[in-house]
Simulated scan of single mutants.
Amino acid sequence: MLRRPMLLPFDFTKDPYLVLDFSATNPDLATLDLTNTAVFNDYVFGKLQQAGAIVGVGGYNEHRVIYRRSEHFQQTVEPRVVHLGIDFWAEAGTPVFAVMDGVVHSFQDNANFGDYGPTIILEHEVNYRPLYSLYGHLSRSSLNGLLWGQKIKAGDKIGEIGPYPENGDWPPHLHFQLMTDMLGLTGDFPGVCSLSERAYWLRICPDPNRLLGIAGL
Rank of each mutant, 00 (worst) to 15 (best):
N144A: 15
N144M: 10
N144C: 09
L146I: 10
L146P: 04
W148P: 05
W148S: 07
W148C: 12
G149S: 14
G149E: 14
K151L: 11
I152K: 04
K153C: 12
G155D: 02
G155I: 02
D156K: 11
K157Y: 03
G159R: 06
G159E: 07
G159S: 06
E160I: 13
G162C: 15
G162A: 13
P163E: 00
Y164S: 08
P165K: 01
P165I: 04
E166T: 15
N167D: 13
N167L: 03
D169K: 01
D169Y: 08
D169C: 07
D169P: 03
W170G: 03
W170N: 02
W170F: 06
P171M: 06
P172E: 15
L174W: 13
H175I: 07
H175E: 04
H175P: 02
F176D: 10
F176Y: 10
Q177F: 10
Q177P: 12
L178W: 01
M179L: 11
M179R: 14
T180F: 08
T180K: 15
T180H: 12
M182S: 04
L183I: 05
L185H: 02
L185K: 11
T186W: 03
T186Q: 10
G187E: 05
D188I: 03
P190M: 01
P190K: 09
G191F: 11
V192E: 09
C193W: 00
S194T: 12
L195M: 11
L195A: 12
L195T: 13
S196F: 05
S196N: 07
E197N: 13
E197Y: 02
E197T: 15
R198G: 04
A199S: 03
A199N: 07
Y200L: 13
R203S: 03
I204F: 06
C205T: 15
P206W: 06
P206A: 11
